[in-house]
Write a protein that binds this DNA or RNA. Structure first.
Length: 588
RNA sequence: GCCACCUUAGCUCAGCUGUAGAGCAGUGCUUUCGUAAAGCAAAGGUCCCCGGUUCAAAUCCGGGAGGUGGCUCCA
């Protein structure tokens, strides 16, 4: 962010935000004396505070509360802290049930508690981290932003409180910069661009979370899927195909039904056994492996299928392409001998690296989820495989120099996993690729291979998806490129504009030559002004605009305008060669 | 699912109790143009849906659906 001439340290900014949270609570209490206070921490862009209030807070209330807070800031109130015992704290916060809840929790570890007072207007239970005086808070660097519902302690079963969010920065300029950044992000929002560029739509009559793709969006999808399919097939993956509905029986074997029944859309087949739309593919893959005998020689067996899953996601969760009810996965299951795990995972990491490089995803990190050694009973499978594979995973990631984070105890009960988290342009985290070891499904489906001693052995399964979900990946791609896709992905790669109808024939010739070369070209008839057609092409973010007129026809050239607005005349054949090579090289 | 807000033409939005408006897109005609908007014309709406209040509702109230931002969830 610009304006880094500011001398405010991150720690100081945190103190300012934290202090503002207290001032917000003080302002709320002034307006609603019966308000019950929750917690008020700092967040990445400011702070929030949770309240139980007699009525819903309105945007007008926010303005009023903000004014009250400014009044407090200008009063130059000191923040003073002191230690109290749990009993004292309980007396001080007798009217505040949520604070009592916190006191009960904290006092179990026999620590002293601290309370902070702001002048004589407010007192809060708090571990500290404030400015010494409200005069240190820039009065124009903060703003109450929005209101949301939030469950006490983040638990759905608890009472829902009203959370008031505030933005807070070290200066008015920094606040403005932040707001400007959000506005820029809005411009590249994939839902907005999806509509403008005619990529996809969601239709009420069809249902929320069920996107439909227009031709341009479908080309994007197909290009993406072909890319990933080719990559896999070059690396020894073999395609399989599976139907989209199944008897519930399958999920009884896999054990999924007991756990996630509510997520699975049931199908009514008129009195036959209960069927479901498939919410996942793993059990199908297991069955295909199981029904033919396997020798140790043929392992690893790498099955792949790009297929759509259907899940009941809560309505409030759905959002554009990033959270849908019909999601297509580039799903792979690799059946390996335990001694092949390391090699196989390393091959997968190669693929992840190649794919991210292709899309220019530099900013990602890896979450390594391992088992909790203090809680061994929670996990199934061979202890040695657990220990070895976790060490291997960590080693492999380290070797590549990727940022990572080890989540001890975050592994699934069936095996450790690697999740690849991509940070988008505005700093949000998105989980894309996942690689998971599974020692459970091979056991439940009684998968086997015959070893060199003719004995039955159990393989390990590695689940793997690189895009994760085609829909989510597309959503992220749209925002990553702000709709300006690299040439190999662009739904329309070049559009040809004859200056007037006199040059229609030459334009058509140009169009045919491009199409023959496999370029996705478009021909724009001359019944609108040239300026207007250029404008339209720019708005559709088409990589190359080819203008042809008298000069070009005579010389056999095209006038190429790129997305930067720069023009260059070149022979048609030369341009085709250039664009072909860019498509082949997947130039960013 | 929960909390708050939003829903008017294909899109972006104005109108906020007195029988619905603009720009763009689309259609027709004219224009045939040298790098981000040529001109004219006609057309386009159960003002999300269902109830209620009112002489009168796009506008006020209740319920529902969908969306946005959060919360929770995400094999």
């Amino acid at each position: 962010m610009p304006h880094n001439e500011s001398t405010t340290s991150p720690e100081k900014l945190d103190h300012i935000r934290h202090s503002l949270a207290h001032l917000l609570a003080a302002a709320v209490l002034k307006e609603f004396p019966d308000a019950k206070l929750g917690i008020g921490p700092t967040i990445e862009s400011g702070f929030y505070y949770d309240f139980l209030l007699p009525r819903a807070v309105t945007p007008d209330d926010l303005k009023m509360l903000e004014k009250t807070m400014r009044g407090f800031v200008n009063k130059k109130l000191p923040f003073t802290g002191r230690e109290v015992t749990a009993a004292e704290a309980k007396k001080l916060f007798a009217e505040q049930p949520f604070k009592l809840d916190l006191i009960n929790e904290f006092s179990t570890d026999s620590k002293k508690l601290t309370v902070y007072e702001t002048g004589d207007i407010f007192m809060d239970l708090c571990r500290g981290g404030h400015v010494e005086n409200t005069s240190e808070i820039p009065a124009d660097g903060f703003k109450l932003d929005k209101i949301a519902g939030a469950y006490w302690r983040g638990d759905e079963k608890n009472q829902q409180l009203q959370r008031i969010y505030g933005l807070a920065f070290e200066s008015k300029e920094a606040l403005k910069d932040y707001e400007k950044m959000l506005e820029e992000a809005k411009k590249r929002d994939h839902r907005k661009l999806g509509k403008e560029l005619q990529l996809f739509t969601i239709i009420d009559e069809i249902g929320p979370g069920l996107p439909l793709f227009y031709p341009k969006g479908a080309i994007l999808r197909r290009t993406l899927e072909n890319y990933i399919t080719d990559l896999q097939e070059q690396r020894g993956y073999v395609p399989i195909w599976i139907p989209h509905i199944t008897k519930g029986e399958l999920y009884k074997i896999s054990g999924h039904l007991d756990k996630y029944d509510a997520m699975y859309p049931p199908m009514d087949l008129k009195g036959e056994a209960k069927y479901y739309l498939k919410p996942m593919n793993c059990p199908h893959f297991m069955m295909l492996y199981k029904t033919i005998p396997h020798s140790y020689r043929e392992l690893p067996v790498r099955y792949t299928c790009t297929t759509t899953n259907y899940r009941y996601e809560k309505s409030g969760e759905l959002s554009g392409l990033t959270r849908v009810r019909a999601l297509t996965q580039d799903d792979c299951h690799v059946f390996v001998r335990p001694d092949q795990i390391e090699h196989e995972i390393n091959l997968m990491l190669d693929m992840v690296a190649e794919v991210y490089k292709t899309f220019g995803f530099d900013d990602f990190w890896v979450r390594i989820s391992t088992h909790d050694p203090a809680n061994k009973d929670k996990y199934i499978g061979d202890q040695k495989i657990w220990a070895d594979s976790e060490a291997t995973l960590t080693e492999l990631i380290k070797k590549r120099g990727w940022k990572y984070d080890i989540g001890v105890g975050e592994a699934a009960f069936y095996g450790p996993k690697l999740d690849f988290i991509f940070k988008d342009v505005i700093g949000r985290d998105w989980q894309l690729s996942t690689i998971q070891l599974d020692m459970n499904l091979p056991q439940r489906f009684e998968l086997e291979y015959i070893d060199e001693n003719s004995e039955k052995q159990r393989p390990v399964v590695i689940h793997r998806a690189i895009l994760g979900s085609t829909e989510r990946f597309l959503g992220i791609l749209i925002e990553h490129f702000a709709g300006k896709f690299p040439i190999w992905l662009a739904p329309v790669q070049a559009t040809i504009l004859p200056i007037s109808e006199k040059f229609s024939d030459y334009a058509k010739k140009t169009y045919d030559a491009m199409t023959d070369a496999g370029v996705r070209a478009e021909l724009s008839a001359a019944n609108e002004s040239l300026g207007k057609r250029i404008r339209e092409a720019e708005m559709m973010k088409i990589p190359y605009v080819l203008v042809v007129g008298e000069k070009e026809e005579a010389a056999g050239t095209v006038n190429v305008r790129d997305r930067k607005g720069e023009e260059k005349e070149m022979p048609l054949a030369e341009f085709i060669k250039k664009i072909e090579s860019e498509i082949k090289e997947k130039t960013l």
